[in-house]
Simulated assay, not measured.
Amino acid sequence: MSRHVQITFDCADPTGMAEFWSTALGYRVQGPPGGYETWERFLDAMDLPPESRNDASAVVDPDGFAPRLFFRRVHEGKRAKNRVHLDVRAAPGLDGDERMAALETEAERLVSRGATRIQRYDPASTLEAGHIMMADPEGNEFCLD
C-alpha cells in the first residue's frame, strides 16, 4: 500500500510561509473546508480567537500530485541547519551555463519574495550539475536544483 506524504514546517508565521512557498512552487493555498466560502468564515464559525487565526496554513499542488506542505506555528525559533530540505527543481533538462542562468533567474525572483541566497555551487563534475542554496523567509534551507 502506498502512502501520501505531507511535509510539515514549524514556523512563526504560517500564512506568510504558505504565501512564500506557493509562489516558489507554483502551488496554491489550500481552500477552506466544504461549506465555507472563505477561511475567515470558517474560523468565525469555529469561534477561533484572533490570536489563534495564524496557527496553521497549508499549500497544495494544483495538479494534486506533489506533497502538501503544512505550516504550523511554534514559539521557538529555528536553531540549527535543516537535516532535511527541499530541492526545488527550477532547471529541469538544462545543463551547464544555461542551467545556472535559469537557477540565477529563479534565485532573484525568490529573493524578491523574501528568500535569502546562501551560496552558489557551480557544476564540478558529471555527478554534480550545480545548484544554489537558499533560505526561505524564516531561514529554512532549500536548494534551487
Rank of each mutant, 00 (worst) to 15 (best):
S2H: 05
S2V: 06
H4V: 08
V5K: 02
I7S: 06
T8L: 14
A12L: 15
D13T: 11
D13F: 06
T15R: 15
M17H: 04
A18T: 10
F20Q: 13
F20A: 12
W21P: 07
L25I: 08
L25S: 07
Y27F: 12
R28I: 08
R28V: 12
R28G: 08
V29G: 02
G34R: 12
G35R: 05
Y36N: 03
E37M: 03
T38E: 04
W39L: 05
W39Y: 04
L43T: 02
D44A: 07
A45F: 02
M46V: 12
M46Y: 04
D47T: 05
D47I: 01
P50A: 08
S52K: 11
N54C: 07
D55E: 10
S57D: 10
A58E: 10
V59A: 10
D61L: 03
F65Q: 10
F65Y: 07
A66F: 05
P67N: 06
R68F: 00
L69T: 06
F70M: 15
F71P: 04
R72G: 09
R73G: 05
H75M: 13
H75I: 10
E76H: 14
R79P: 06
R79N: 12
A80G: 13
A80D: 15
K81I: 12
R83D: 07
R83Y: 03
V84L: 14
V84M: 10
V84F: 06
L86C: 03
R89K: 11
A91I: 09
A91Y: 06
L94K: 15
D97C: 09
D97S: 15
M100W: 05
M100L: 12
L103S: 07
E104K: 08
T105H: 10
T105P: 00
E106N: 07
E106F: 01
E106I: 01
E106G: 01
R109I: 02
R109G: 02
L110F: 04
R113T: 07
R113K: 14
G114H: 11
T116C: 11
R117T: 13
Q119A: 15
P123E: 13
A124E: 14
S125E: 14
L127P: 00
E128T: 09
A129D: 07
G130C: 07
H131V: 04
M134E: 06
A135G: 03
G139T: 00
G139M: 00
G139E: 01
N140W: 01
E141C: 00
E141W: 00
C143E: 02
L144I: 01
L144R: 01
